[in-house]
Design a protein around this nucleic acid. Structure first.
Length: 536
DNA sequence: TTAGGGTTAG
């Protein structure tokens, strides 16, 4: 067949592969793949090869995509990038990185694929490093690349980096005022950095707003416990005829949940489909279970799960289990846990939660039964990790129980001193988060090595007096650390912002912002730290 | 005419 005859035919093949990729129909894709024989195989045409890789990886057949890539006699940056994205989406950043290293000419899209890959795999430090390298290589930055950088800053809660990103956005003429994608990413970043007012300032400045900007802002308000603001914005959004989507409803339902607005939440849930055409999915049901459960309506929450029209996922049962911990209900907890152990057999958090519920109910024989189960499965708790931004903008990581930081000795000494001062003021370590059979003295020693305390001590040592300290933690903050943060904010006159995997805690003058919601604890009363309500 | 993107709950 003559070469000029092949071109139109190869366009047809590519269009077919694209369609198969979109429909996730790998069987049909394979059949068409076999037919490339008639044009001398896909190897004869780079364009056909690239769309074939894309088809396989979209359908989830990464290995087949890799085979095509390996067999192609000629590849371009698009072939490499398709594969890099596929590995990144598969969570394999190591292979993605190797491919990227081997890529002879890296363009902006390839760099962005790596940046975004790291962001999606919760490796914000690596993402920012990539972003920096891309800038150093003199590659242009467009809005997609910028959004990758902004998301990385959001994950890190890194003020200095955030400012750096803002400056770049300015330089590149990508202003949140005129660019709705950049604007929405900034709203998200500021919310996640604990600066919800700044997020709202960006939101207000935006000339064009869409469902992403509204939803991001609503979710931001919800995250910081500002339920009224979230609801107000929701109705404002509806008035502007911006159609809410599923994420918008996750936001408003969460806001209601944290504020205990049960009736308001019930109404919203009922009107989702009726008034806005958004069919409640499992996530919305999880929000409702959380809302009802937190408010103590455990029976109603259970009924909702048992009668929901779709299969409940781990999030739904998890919300119920969390509510059982809050209200100390081991009976409903057992029902939720049974499903969770089936759905998420390797998630140790559920076992720990159930064992804590038994412990609260004084059912110690059940506690040891669960512990044995966990041991038998060989499961280990994820190590706690916290990070904090130093004065120079560098991010410092701390793992629970590890003293590998170069300044470990000073950090430990400063922490001891801080804890001694707190004790003189009435602080008593809260040992309840430690469930192993060790003495109280040993428990206290373990608590001293919690990652957020190390991060706090480092922050106090290395940042300017009076400036706020921002800490991020991968797990939920424990009772004792929460107590210490409260006390530290008072005696050091520092604002401490701690983001754990659940929400924000703003500690100021001995009080935490979560006090007004479900986590009222560690407030100062005549100079004595008192847990008000048992920590969930 | 093939590659990268923003919001998500326990």
């Amino acid at each position: 067949m003559r070469r000029d005859c092949i071109r139109p035919v190869s366009f047809t093949f590519s269009a077919l592969f694209k369609a198969c990729g979109a429909k996730l129909d790998v069987e049909l894709g394979r059949q068409i793949h076999a037919q490339t024989f008639f044009i001398g195989g896909y190897e004869s045409d780079l364009f056909v090869g690239n769309t074939l890789i894309d088809m396989y990886v979209k359908c989830g057949f990464l290995d087949c995509g890799r085979c095509v890539f390996d067999e192609m006699p000629e590849r371009d940056v698009i072939s490499w990038t398709s594969l890099i994205v596929a590995y990144a989406k598969n969570g394999d950043m190591e292979v993605a990185g190797e491919l990227f290293e081997g890529l002879p000419e890296k363009d902006m899209v390839a760099w962005t694929a790596m940046i975004t890959g790291y962001v999606q795999n919760a490796k914000p430090k690596e993402a920012l490093k990539m972003f920096e390298m891309m800038r150093d290589a003199g590659v242009r930055t467009d809005e997609v690349a910028l959004v990758g950088g902004i998301s990385a800053c959001a994950q890190l809660v890194a003020e200095k980096h955030a400012q750096w990103i803002c400056d770049i956005a300015d330089k590149e003429g990508l202003s949140p005022v005129t660019n709705v994608v950049v604007g929405s990413a900034f709203i998200d970043m500021y919310s996640k950095c604990g600066r919800v007012e700044e997020a709202y300032r960006v939101f207000e400045s935006m000339k064009v707003k869409n469902v992403f900007s509204y939803s991001s802002m609503i979710v931001g308000f919800a995250m910081h416990g500002k339920a009224d603001a979230a609801m107000k914005l929701f109705y404002e959004m509806v008035e502007t005829e911006t159609k809410p989507n599923r994420v918008t409803f996750v936001g408003v339902l969460t806001a209601c949940s944290h504020a205990g607005m049960v009736q308001q939440g019930r109404c919203l849930f009922a009107s989702m489909q009726k008034d806005y055409g958004v069919v409640p999915d499992a996530d919305h049901h999880a929000c409702m279970v959380d809302l009802l459960g937190r408010a103590g309506h455990l029976e109603e929450a259970l009924e909702l799960v048992e009668t929901m029209p779709l299969e409940p996922h781990g999030g739904v049962w998890g919300a119920l289990l969390g509510a059982c911990r809050l209200h100390g209900n081991p009976d409903i907890a057992e029902i939720a846990a049974k499903h969770l152990f089936e759905l998420e057999p390797n998630s140790i958090g559920n076992y720990i939660l159930l064992s804590n519920i038994y412990a609260l109910a004084g059912r110690m024989e059940d506690v040891s039964r669960i512990r044995k189960l966990v041991r038998g499965k060989g499961m280990k708790k994820n190590p706690g990790c916290s990070w904090v931004e130093a004065k120079d903008g560098n991010i410092h990581e701390f793992y629970a129980g590890e003293m590998t930081h170069p300044k470990s000795k000073e950090i430990k000494k400063a922490l001891e001193k801080l804890l001694d001062t707190l004790k003189r003021e009435g602080y008593k370590p809260n040992l309840s988060s430690i469930v192993y059979d060790i003495s109280d003295g040993e428990k206290e020693q373990v608590l001293k090595t919690h990652s957020e305390k190390l991060a706090l001590s480092f922050g106090l040592l290395t940042t300017t007096a009076g400036s706020p300290i921002k800490i991020v933690k991968n797990l939920r903050v424990c009772e004792d650390c929460h107590l210490v943060m409260c006390g530290a904010s008072r005696i050091t006159k520092r604002e401490i912002v701690l983001r754990d995997n659940m929400r924000f805690h703003h500690f100021r003058d001995g009080v935490c912002s979560c006090v007004s919601t479900e986590m009222a604890m560690g407030i100062w009363d005549d100079g004595i730290l008192l847990p008000l309500i048992p920590y969930p």
